[in-house]
């Protein structure tokens, strides 16, 4: 399988999940909502993160490399100037959307608004993701995002009735260059 992969190929996740014995639920229970059906495939309105600072990048790298020192490309401007990037860049997994002063409304995690049979709210968990990267993020960049609900499936699992929701999210910088495309799986149970 590996040899047939192409960049941006995310489909194998879904195939794998289905191969793992994951069948359609035997009951009428569903966590799929009308809002999800209405939203499927439609890009939402974009939203924008505050400008990235060198300190944001340095702290991110210090957290993810802890307890060791992060690579100089993420915090040493003089060193970074000598590299192919010509300056500090963010680690590819850097999230410029953390810590908004006002959290954008209407873009919560999809598929979480349903209720379990016992009336409790659903628990959401991260099932995984595939990111394809374009240009790197740099200090001063202003990143905008838009997302859409791709599809979903349900099964009876270890945690009971479980909904898997696949979303696509696209990030672009202030010059409209593609920074990242992410396909992610949300688990709701």
């Amino acid at each position: 399988m590996s040899h047939n992969r192409r960049i941006g190929d995310n489909v194998h996740w879904l195939k794998y999940t289905r191969q793992r014995g994951i069948s359609q639920p035997m009951t009428d229970l569903t966590y799929v909502t009308d809002e999800m059906r209405a939203a499927q495939g439609r890009w939402g309105e974009p939203w924008t993160a505050p400008p990235i600072t060198a300190t944001d990048i340095r702290r991110w790298a210090m957290a993810t490399f802890y307890p060791e020192q992060p690579p100089r490309i993420y915090w040493d401007a003089d060193y970074a100037a000598t590299t192919q990037w010509g300056g500090i860049v963010a680690p590819p997994d850097f999230n410029p959307f953390a810590w908004p002063v006002e959290r954008p409304r209407g873009r919560g995690s999809p598929g979480l608004s349903g209720r379990r049979p016992d009336g409790k709210p659903l628990t959401g968990m991260n099932g995984g993701q595939t990111d394809t990267y374009g240009v790197p993020m740099r200090p001063g960049d202003v990143i905008s995002a838009r997302n859409r609900l791709v599809d979903w499936w349900e099964r009876e699992g270890r945690l009971g009735h479980t909904l898997y929701v696949r979303s696509e999210i696209e990030w672009r910088n202030q010059d409209d260059e593609l920074v990242r495309t992410r396909f992610s799986i949300g688990i709701r149970y």
């Binding site: 794998y16 590819p92 995984g128 993701q129 595939t130 990111d131 394809t132 799986i185």
Partner: peptide, 10 residues
């Protein structure tokens, strides 16, 4: 080098 794509399942 450049990281172009990373995907994983938890």
């Amino acid at each position: 080098g450049v990281v172009r794509e990373v995907g994983c399942q938890y």
